[in-house]
Simulated assay, not measured.
Amino acid sequence: MSIDPSRETFESIYAGKPPWEIGKPQRAFVEIADQVTGAVLDVGCGTGENALFFAERGHPVLGIDFLERPVEEARRKAKRRGLHAEFDCRDALTLTELNRQFDSVVDSGLFHVFSDEDRVRYVAGLASVTKPGGRLFLLCFSDEEPGTLGPRRVSEQELRDAFAEGWAVEEVRATRFEIAPDLKDLSFSEGGPKAWFSAMRRQG
């Protein structure tokens, strides 16, 4: 079953146990943590594990998600852990209205939910919130993951094409998503769903 990107679908998923909620940051972001500089925006932050990881490393962090439930949980986590991080309920397709810019932007599993039309809007929004010379770090489902379970698959060429204007694509490499280990009725590749990890630098 493919994931419908609608608000109702994600509200339903968060009412249970989202497969991407693993209680820690995704390994792909831990591996490049030293490349992340300055103020960080986590787009589609969910319950905040990636955002809180960077906050713990001393970065000013804003995490946004279009659902109130995970944003509230992210705020509770920050309080419990004694970490300072902002979390805001905001649609990622309205980034151009944020009126803030960041040195680093992270996207863990959001890019792949958008239609072609919304993808264009989203990339334009990312450009507006990333400082010139700032970097975007993006983790998305790969077209090398077999089947149709989960979100839309993305090819390396689609990634490069989406960021062809105004960005320097520094890296696209194959990796894996980590998912919750106790999920029922979900079957992905052994070792986790195949993914692309990309690093892009904002030009201008």
Rank of each mutant, 00 (worst) to 15 (best):
F141T: 08
G109P: 11
S108Q: 01
E156N: 10
V30P: 14
L136P: 01
E170T: 12
D65W: 01
R75D: 05
S187P: 00
P181K: 12
R160T: 15
A78M: 03
V129Y: 08
E49L: 01
S187F: 06
C140L: 04
T47D: 15
V172D: 11
V154R: 02
E31R: 15
Q26G: 09
K79G: 08
L62W: 01
C89P: 00
P18F: 03
Q157T: 14
D182K: 00
D118F: 07
R201H: 03
G23H: 11
Q35H: 12
A124D: 12
V169R: 05
S142P: 08
P146W: 12
D88W: 04
R69I: 10
A199D: 00
L159P: 11
V36K: 02
V113G: 04
L136Y: 08
S115M: 11
R80D: 15
V40R: 10
D103V: 07
F10T: 05
R57I: 10
D42F: 03
S6M: 03
E68I: 03
R176T: 13
I32N: 09
K194I: 11
E97S: 14
I179F: 10
A74G: 07
L98T: 08
F177P: 08
V30L: 06
E158Q: 15
V36D: 01
V113Y: 04
V40L: 14
H59A: 09
V154A: 03
P5D: 07
G63R: 00
Y14A: 09
F10V: 09
I13N: 06
P70H: 04
S187Q: 11
L110E: 03
R201S: 09
K131Q: 13
T47H: 07
H112C: 06
E170W: 13
A74Y: 00
F137L: 10
G147L: 12
R135L: 02
D88Q: 07
F137R: 06
R27N: 11
A199P: 00
E68G: 09
W20D: 08
F141D: 01
P70V: 12
D91R: 00
L41V: 14
D143C: 08
E56D: 15
Q203L: 14
L138S: 12
T9P: 08
S104L: 04
I179S: 05
D161P: 07
S108H: 01
L139H: 04
V105M: 09
F177I: 04
S104Y: 03
D118Q: 11
P193S: 08
E8W: 02
E144P: 02
V71E: 03
L67D: 00
E165S: 14
R57M: 12
H84V: 15
F197T: 02
F197A: 02
G82L: 02
T37Y: 13
S2D: 14
E171I: 07
D34T: 13
D65C: 04
D42S: 10
Q203F: 10
A168D: 14
G204F: 07
E73Q: 15
L186P: 01
T47A: 14
E165F: 11
W167R: 04
A168T: 13
G109S: 07
A174W: 00
